[in-house]
Design a binder for these strands. Structure first.
Lengths: 113, 113
DNA sequence: TAAAAATACTCCATAGGTATTTTAT
DNA sequence: ATAAAATACCTATGGAGTATTTTTA
């Protein structure tokens, strides 16, 4: 099963193009990140990156997966924002009270006495 | 940290409106699902559902989170499809060959002899 | 008071760390 | 030859199950 963690690690890997630096950027050890990438490849049944001495390059599938991974990560961030009570849409009727002496001056033509 | 599992469990809960049935629908025990929902609420810092004797109803935040959860789950499904080598975009020129005797009949007005 | 969710507890799977080996240029 | 990724091995966290208690309409 794919996990968010794997998507984050994979995104870091595609950004850094280097297992060691990618691991560092997500604050885990290189073997930990490596294991998750391998696990992810196993889950998806596809090789995502080509490992080379001086190059870590995404495969065709890797590129496509990366695009979707970013979408998922973004959606996830939005989900977390949506959970904040402060982000409430505040949709509904709004009544504003005004004292009669001020209303005609503040909102001329709009106040109901 | 929010996980995919939690999103799946939460989606099931909003669908079933019942912890027991939701757990059954995702093939885990009721306490397991309950724990993940609580864990998710703790991670988000917001109550997602109101627990009642005959009713499990989503809170305002729960409804908003649900919408995003579905987006994430859908994106994730698309990611898995994208990993399949067969799902290559197949973009590029396509040439179709036809024998001269059939072409004018199959594609009248479109064939180049 | 009865159906439903939460808690207690135990177990096991797995993610992560350190040390080391293998690989590819 | 050397930088970099994979493997080995160990530990600990936490997710899941069963049994039970607490809650609420």
């Amino acid at each position: 099963m794919i996990t968010f963690k794997q998507l984050r690690y994979f995104e870091a890997l595609s950004r850094e193009r280097h297992f060691g630096r990618a691991a560092e950027s997500v604050h885990v050890s290189q073997p930990a990140l490596s294991a998750q990438i391998m696990e992810m490849e196993a889950s998806l049944g596809a090789r995502l990156v080509e490992r080379g001495r001086r190059k870590v390059i995404l495969t065709r599938e890797g590129k496509r997966v990366l695009a979707h991974a970013r979408t998922v990560l973004t959606s996830m961030a939005e989900l977390e924002r949506a959970a904040r009570p402060s982000s409430a849409p505040l949709v509904g009727p709004l009544a504003i009270g005004l004292i009669p002496t001020v209303a005609p001056i503040s909102f001329p033509g709009w106040c109901r006495i």
